[in-house]
Amino acid sequence: MNDGVPILIVEDEPPIRRLLRTSLGPNGFHVIEAETGGQALDLAAREKPDVMLLDLGLPDMDGSEVIRRLRSAGSRLPIIVLSSRGDERGKVEALDLGADDFVTKPFGMAELLARIRAALRHRVQDQGGDPLFQAGDVHVDLMRRRITRAGEAVKLSPKEYDILRLLVTHAGKVLTHRMLMQEVWGAAGDVQYLRIYIRQLRQKLERDPERPEIILTETGVGYRLVEPG
């Protein structure tokens, strides 16, 4: 029996696979490797990994197709995309298809391990996400619909609350502009509306709205709520 958390690495470049294998093994992971999308789908079904690291540029199919097939089959396997710098379109497509997060190459191992730990935490949460969130002096209790900052109640408009609820439910994960627009407004629309509401939320929740520490921008992609703590 293999010890460690099973993690499936889907990457066609041997040096990157070797780097990930030698770095993740000592950190408590049992590494499973695939070079193609076809192998990834087979191993995901057979080995039942707890998380997948997925490169988008595979020799037999695009990594986004791997995500689409897994999600179409009902798989909730956490997927972290390994993307090239500047590939915003690929990141957005992967996230909209159901990827949980992305890390841009070249990446630091400390950052990658943090993203993996966050993905594993999401895996064990209830389907609706953790209703309690705390970051600094901001507390959000979705069960009671209560938001406070430094002990003072924060009043939000219905749309502001809907956006914050989604961010809290998926804290630490990237939500794309399209995903937020679809969930809050019911259709894709002018992202400027979303930016206005994000700005208003930051005014109410951040110590310095111009240097946000809670609601973070993923440039060209969407927004991420900081991991609670």
Rank of each mutant, 00 (worst) to 15 (best):
D87K: 10
D87Y: 08
D87S: 12
E88M: 10
R89M: 09
R89V: 11
G90D: 09
G90Y: 10
K91D: 04
K91I: 15
V92D: 02
V92G: 01
V92C: 04
E93C: 11
E93S: 13
E93V: 15
E93D: 11
L95W: 11
L95K: 12
L95A: 06
D96V: 04
D96L: 01
D96E: 15
G98Y: 02
A99F: 08
A99V: 10
A99C: 06
D100P: 00
D101E: 14
F102H: 14
F102A: 07
F102P: 10
F102V: 12
F102W: 04
V103I: 15
T104I: 13
K105D: 01
K105C: 04
P106E: 09
F107A: 01
F107Q: 00
F107P: 00
G108I: 05
M109Q: 12
M109S: 03
A110L: 10
E111D: 13
L112Q: 07
L112F: 11
L112Y: 07
L112D: 00
L112R: 03
L112G: 10
L113F: 05
L113S: 04
A114L: 04
A114N: 08
A114F: 06
R115V: 08
R115G: 09
I116A: 04
I116F: 07
R117W: 01
R117T: 13
